[in-house]
Design a protein around this nucleic acid. Structure first.
Lengths: 155, 155
DNA sequence: CTCCTTTGATTGACACGTCAATCATCCGCT
DNA sequence: AGCGGATGATTGACGTGTCAATCAAAGGAG
């Protein structure tokens, strides 16, 4: 006869859904709060920060556009749009590449360098306050494990 | 004398930053994958889904605009823009409110109802596959705890 | 009843993201 | 040399999100 549990594991239980929603909404709230603080403290968006970080660490503070995209895991189109906005604000410059006429090199300007320097410490402090300090060492380890398991499952 | 540990707890350690990045990037990847599957399977964005869910559960499948915004935790401006796009696609209709001439009522159309019905099971199945099934029961509980701790800390 | 503030909702401007199309250059192959 | 596909990068269209401005209707104080 048909068991009342025949659909077991097909759909999440109410409790599983509750955890799911809590997890994803919390992560989103965290991202938003970090972004808002970064913006307020330094005038940089999270995207700006990622770009400036990669450029700061690069040799000569310059990178080929596609290398930069790889470094921060963005699609080239997204990067191109973002670089346009950042260039307009004077945070970086785009130069033609001597070794490949198709290529573009992205160069950090002094303004971009200064903005990133000013942003770093407050940003890392916010990460500590909003994430690290909120968790016990045990919870922090668990968070790492959970993230690893989810990533492995994503393939 | 100045201790080498005088800055202890001011900035996160490398390991703490690694966990932080893993956590936030995994959550983002999860959100993106869920959204992509929802879009592919039903033609609905996560935003569409949230709006349709609230309307489906509402009395008479209709809600005041601001009540809808509260239900799903959106700013009214965001909702207004989104409703405009959904209305253009025939998923819902906006009517004037009889009891308050400023107000607007949002009404689910048959098309919107059908789209939501078609989306529900595949979406919940994806949540199970990408989140619930990726974690052991112990990890699932830990994820809930971690999210609760972070939320409490956000205030 | 007449102000005046509050409330419900929309709008416009702009930042951000994705997708598909475009375009020039590079490079391997004949 | 020259053809043709791969590569580097940009662009345009559009969905999405935030912020500030707008605007009409509602509602309380005098």
């Amino acid at each position: 006869m048909t068991q009342p549990t025949r659909r077991r594991r097909v759909l999440p239980t109410t409790e599983e859904l509750r955890v799911w929603r809590g997890f994803i909404e919390t992560a989103e709230a965290l991202r938003a709060e970090l972004g808002a603080r970064l913006q307020a403290e330094s005038g940089l968006s999270p995207g700006d920060y990622a770009v400036l970080l990669a450029l700061t660490e690069a040799d000569g503070q310059r990178l080929r556009s596609s290398q930069l995209a790889d470094d921060i895991g963005w699609e080239r189109s997204r990067l191109s749009h973002h670089l346009g906005r950042m260039e307009k604000r004077g945070l970086l410059r785009r130069e033609e590449c001597r070794t490949d006429n198709r290529g573009a090199e992205v160069v950090l300007t002094p303004e971009g360098d200064a903005a990133f320097r000013a942003a770093t410490v407050p940003h890392l402090t916010a990460v500590r306050e909003l994430f690290v300090d909120a968790l016990t060492p045990h919870q922090l380890a668990a968070a790492g494990e959970v993230a690893a398991a989810l990533r492995a499952n994503l393939g």
